[in-house]
Amino acid sequence: MITLSNVSKSYAGKRVLGPISLELPAGGITALVGPNGAGKSTLLTIMGRLLEPDSGTVVVGEANVATTPSRELAKVLSILRQENHFITRLTVAQLVAFGRFPHSRGRLTAADQAHVENALEFLSLTDLRDRFLDELSGGQRQRAYVAMVLAQDTRYILLDEPLNNLDIHHAVGMMRQLRRAADELGKTFVIVIHDINFASAYADRIVALRDGELVMAGTPDETMRDEVLGALFDTEVRVRHDGAYPLAVYYR
């Protein structure tokens, strides 16, 4: 379970987030949705201890994110940011192997190697394993980063726009893999996502933010409603219920 209590963040006196109190149960996929500047990524980076909140606490599992040693936390919680630039030139396999650092401290055992292989396979990167990251397309690179946090093998995984740069095929593939990891391996995902329909199709919970405040949190059936989405995005949205999951139509 991830528990946020009174979390807030301001930049130069302007409040960009909160105060937010929220409980996310363990297991499944939680999607953070909302318009640009709603504070989704800020909230995610605070959960992942990459950003210190001005007030409030975050507890992931049993660990208080602010006080638990980073080294211990890295075995429980992993976070992937949207933009990753490295000064070092790495191959896909080298990058994914870094995911094992919290467990191996740099000396890969056979078990670590197996985790790396699994992660590569999980994201169909086995053929690309020896390619350098700067030789890959944006989508392939994105998958390599996700493979790294999967190799880290933490119970809680926070992803900032994992579908960034992915085409339809790979976006669907990625969401299926996350769903599978949640169902089969019991992982807990919190993802920032822009495509509300992906959230509806794959997430167990949708948390809607706007102007740094919590608008609504609930199952897709609860949140995918005309008036909720319309007000959230300031756009006329009609939600259709003729399939397996609600689908928002807002294109024209």
Binding site: G48, P69, A74, I79, N84, F86, I87, F98
Partner: peptide, 21 residues
């Protein structure tokens, strides 16, 4: 500390995610 250095070279966010202070 050479392995830590390799991780540190990945930058603040990735190194923190991988458990370094």
């Amino acid at each position: 500390r050479r392995h830590r250095l390799d991780v540190l070279a990945l930058g603040r966010e990735t190194a923190t995610n991988l458990g370094l202070n």
